[in-house]
Write a protein that binds this DNA or RNA. Sequence first.
DNA 1: CTGAAAGCGCTTACAG
DNA 2: CTGAAAGCGCTTACAG
Lengths: 341, 341
Amino acid sequence: MKKGVTTLKKLSKILNLSVSTVSRALNDHPDISDETKESVKKLAQSMNYVPNIFAKGFRKSKSNILGVLVPSITHYFHSTILKGILEEASMKGYRVIISESNNDVLQQTEMLNTLTQFGVDGILASLTKKTKNVDSILPVFSKLPVILFDKVSNKIPCTRIITNDEEAAYNVVEHLINIGKKRIAIIKEREFSYNSEKRYTGYLKALKDNNLEIDEKIIISVDDISQQQGKRMTNILLSLKQRPDAIFAITDGAAIGVIQTLKKFNIKIPEEIAVVGFSNNINSTIIEPTLTTVDQPGETLGKTAVKYLIEEIESNTDIVMHKTIELKSSLIIRDSTFRAK
Amino acid sequence: MKKGVTTLKKLSKILNLSVSTVSRALNDHPDISDETKESVKKLAQSMNYVPNIFAKGFRKSKSNILGVLVPSITHYFHSTILKGILEEASMKGYRVIISESNNDVLQQTEMLNTLTQFGVDGILASLTKKTKNVDSILPVFSKLPVILFDKVSNKIPCTRIITNDEEAAYNVVEHLINIGKKRIAIIKEREFSYNSEKRYTGYLKALKDNNLEIDEKIIISVDDISQQQGKRMTNILLSLKQRPDAIFAITDGAAIGVIQTLKKFNIKIPEEIAVVGFSNNINSTIIEPTLTTVDQPGETLGKTAVKYLIEEIESNTDIVMHKTIELKSSLIIRDSTFRAK
DNA sequence: CTGAAAGCGCTTACAG
DNA sequence: CTGAAAGCGCTTACAG
């Protein structure tokens, strides 16, 4: 530690007050006279007094640091969530430690443990896709407040902040029906993906509500959804006797692969086959035709998650009601389903 | 603090040893017998002992936390740098606090100060483009180790980690010359942007070395480089009597705007006008034609920055040699300059 | 309205 | 090889 650092002790000596009084004055304790407060604060200011965060944290066993765990920081949607988290946290006087699980279950467990032992006041986590077994991370949830966002699990008792994937997918399919499509394929993830399942449920529901046939042949599940897989699965769909007239890919990345393959075969988008993605990545306006997709409110999601987490941290009761907050996302219609003339 | 937490005191009581011995055993102090060490470690393990990071940090006035400041976390290149930072830091036993300046000079100063007072051991920062006056952030650099990366300033005495922008730009221009281009335009930022200036210097040098005319009319400077500006500036370039036969945009975003505008006017890329960007964003493979660009080693840059920062933090001398580390980036040739048949 | 004192959990110079 | 004790900078119950 640099010498010359201003401490309560130094201030108290100069002012001929006790350390306790100085501490209380700085913390606006009601017992202290306005006069004293003023003189203390003035001196503190002029001497650039900054409380030692570690002494403080140590004393109160509170760090004012939030831990955040995401699968990958370069994932665009997650980076917008992080933006919201940073902003809200900083407004509330909290700092944010970020870690990545790299979509690896082992790393995820390790990171959660390290965050915990690093003394964060609470954790905001988005799980890896492959998180089937939650046993190894469950203990963390009983040690400190943890809130899950986006990639959540319903095997874990905690507050969850998500977007209305089911409804959004329902709207996607209704939009496709509205533009005259009748044979709507979906490219989704095979299993364990909470979000994919929700979107699939919305898809099924919309088909049923509109009395459209549900055909297993155009319901495609892949292990790891990606642009590559989008391409590959489109080839499969095109090889069917009865081709679909629309393809709903569960992610923008896959939807872009779909478009690229359709273009390769000179299939007219959206006239022959319409395409919809999910997430409104930057890419979705670069691809031609521009991609109809679902815009998810990343920043708002991040901010909301922070609000609920801090509420839990600062609440005095031990009984916490776990809520599931669903934020509205919105359909963005672009050229891949409907071209304005 | 939860009750039931294992502390050194508890361990010492159970083992009938002093707290000091337990502490030393856990820290592998040479004075302690192997026997004692073993039994202490065993018990600590079985009781899930985790050192209180705040007591430790407080005691040693070291937090093992690095502060990172970037203009925007959603910026793709920076998010890859962050990935590298997180990985390297976690390997070295450090955690990372991330903040954004939102490209705002005031927020930048504030964030640097907060990081400092939050007791981070050192800071990694990438400055806002508009950082002309560094007076307000200079004090931070004398308080603790700070390393600048990517968006640096040479008005600040510190270690800098950057990519070889000048050389990379030189290579871009040489590549354009090699494919037969003679009238190469550049779209750059107006001022104060360290990176833009470097790239511009490389551009000028390559033209001179190849005896090509430097024509002010095709050297375009914009305030805030973006896709929009790329479009607008292309319109200007196309309105010239003597059109360029290649456009080098200082960022991928702008280059994409360039391509979109050229396509609007049915100009053949690269035959009539070739286009090059900078950074190798995800977008650069989505746009058609795919974009020739410069790939910058984001993760390596992040890791390197962490290495140098930790070296400074852990060095015992007060005299630190400030270095400037330049990492190699590489030209990625795609369809916007050269189409494989 | 103010102060003296204890204590948060750890490390480490000093002593043996 | 081990222990007693001091102290890091802060907050807060207790006393006046």
